[in-house]
């Protein structure tokens, strides 16, 4: 199965996890996702997800001015975002366990 299909469901979770780890701007988040192993995700999807999470109140954003280049819009997680992250983390682990049992494979941690 194409991983992009799998990804659509959990991109929110992945983005929240990355931002919870450390505040980041658009491409920074993309880079970290890729280095974590999620190669397939498109930049536009990540940016749109960041936008949506921000609109729904799960993320905060602030602008950091820069001398060298353009200003950067950084995203950070807030309490609501952390709560969402926890809830989704639990959901994921339950789901992964269910799928593992269904497929007869070990759960990948």
């Amino acid at each position: 199965m194409d991983t992009t299909q799998l990804l659509k469901g959990v991109l929110d979770l992945a983005v929240l996890a990355v931002v919870a780890d450390e505040d980041g701007y658009g491409y920074d988040v993309v880079r970290r996702l890729r280095s974590a192993g999620i190669e397939e995700v498109g930049d536009a999807s990540v940016y749109g997800t960041l936008r949506r999470l921000y609109s729904s109140g799960a993320l905060t954003s602030y602008v950091v001015p820069s001398d060298e280049g353009p200003h950067r819009k950084y995203y950070g997680i807030n309490a609501q975002g952390r709560a969402m992250l926890e809830a989704q983390r639990k959901d994921w682990q339950e789901f992964a366990g269910t799928m593992a049992r269904l497929l007869g494979t070990e759960t990948v941690r």
Binding site: Y25, V30, R31, D43, Y47, G48, R72
Partner: peptide, 20 residues
């Protein structure tokens, strides 16, 4: 504007990134 604020910078970053 909301969606595309900083788009140029992100695109430029993506192009310039050696690991990317």
């Amino acid at each position: 504007d909301d969606l595309t604020d900083g788009l140029e910078a992100d695109l430029a970053d993506a192009l310039a990134d050696e690991r990317h």
